[in-house]
Simulated scan of single mutants.
Amino acid sequence: MEILMASTSPSAATVSLKLMIDPKSNRLLFAEAGKDFVDFLFYIMSLPVGTVTRLLGKQATVGCIGNIYGSIENLDDSYFLSAPEKDMLLRPMLTNYAANVAFLLPSMQSSTHTNLYKCASRRCMNVTFEYNSRCLSNSTHGSMYQKLTFVNPTNGVPYSGGDADGGFVKGGVAYMIMDDLTVTSVSGTTIITLLKEFNVKDVSDLEEKVIAVGVNEGVELLKASMQTKTVLSSVFLVKKESSVKSEPLH
């Protein structure tokens, strides 16, 4: 079974997703993906709520989260204890895992308040964003004034494929992605069970579509994952045929 891998072209920041569709009912049975796409899906779980709200827009988020974001945005700076508090709520720092995951979301500038400070003790591991604040370590109780630089490897670092790049799951494995984004490993038993569940009697009747997933699709997947249980169908089955490579299975 072919394992789908990330594009290695610098100008094509996409990964591949293979959709298995019943053309008679235009129903998505499942998708097959490699490490790159699964890493991206799992990376979504590490995104701060503030980052998701910025990516999707205040009106696109579920419930009242957009209202909270807008309130922080509109509340005068004088009501916050200090400038870093407001900035870090609106532009939270992203996890470093982004450097090891398919780069399928727009680059988002993190808070500019990324300086860290520590006290003079070499043994103390406490750090803070606030310059000259008191260290709470029982051994020092000193002032935290020594500047440490926060290094964010996520800025502009695209995924290049392969286990050496980290991420979350193992490479060289085919993964099955259900329409509701449930992820499992591909196995013959799982596929047979699924075909019976969907009442598919002849596998040759199925249609295979290979989709190139880029930044636009990444944002659509993130949005759909918060709004529906049929994420892949809502994002990809409405795509124009010209953007999809389709071929029958034999």
Score class of each variant (00 low, 15 high):
residue 153 P to K: 08
residue 153 P to L: 03
residue 153 P to S: 04
residue 154 T to D: 02
residue 155 N to K: 07
residue 155 N to F: 00
residue 156 G to K: 01
residue 156 G to P: 00
residue 158 P to D: 11
residue 158 P to Q: 09
residue 159 Y to D: 02
residue 159 Y to A: 06
residue 160 S to C: 08
residue 160 S to H: 10
residue 162 G to C: 09
residue 163 D to M: 09
residue 163 D to H: 07
residue 164 A to C: 11
residue 164 A to M: 14
residue 164 A to F: 13
residue 165 D to H: 13
residue 165 D to N: 14
residue 166 G to F: 04
residue 166 G to I: 04
residue 167 G to I: 12
residue 168 F to A: 13
residue 168 F to Y: 15
residue 169 V to P: 10
residue 169 V to T: 09
residue 169 V to Y: 15
residue 169 V to F: 15
residue 169 V to Q: 08
residue 170 K to W: 01
residue 170 K to F: 04
residue 170 K to C: 12
residue 171 G to D: 13
residue 171 G to R: 03
residue 172 G to C: 10
residue 176 M to E: 08
residue 177 I to A: 10
residue 177 I to W: 11
residue 177 I to C: 12
residue 178 M to G: 13
residue 179 D to Q: 11
residue 180 D to S: 10
residue 181 L to V: 05
residue 182 T to R: 13
residue 182 T to L: 07
residue 183 V to G: 09
residue 186 V to R: 11
residue 186 V to N: 05
residue 186 V to S: 07
residue 188 G to S: 04
residue 189 T to C: 05
residue 189 T to V: 04
residue 190 T to R: 14
residue 191 I to G: 07
residue 191 I to V: 15
residue 192 I to C: 06
residue 193 T to R: 12
residue 195 L to H: 01
residue 196 K to D: 11
residue 197 E to I: 03
residue 198 F to A: 12
residue 198 F to P: 02
residue 198 F to M: 11
residue 199 N to C: 09
residue 201 K to D: 09
residue 201 K to F: 01
residue 202 D to A: 06
residue 204 S to R: 01
residue 204 S to V: 08
residue 204 S to P: 10
residue 205 D to V: 13
residue 205 D to K: 06
residue 205 D to Y: 01
residue 206 L to K: 07
residue 206 L to A: 09
residue 207 E to F: 03
residue 207 E to L: 11
residue 207 E to M: 05
residue 207 E to D: 00
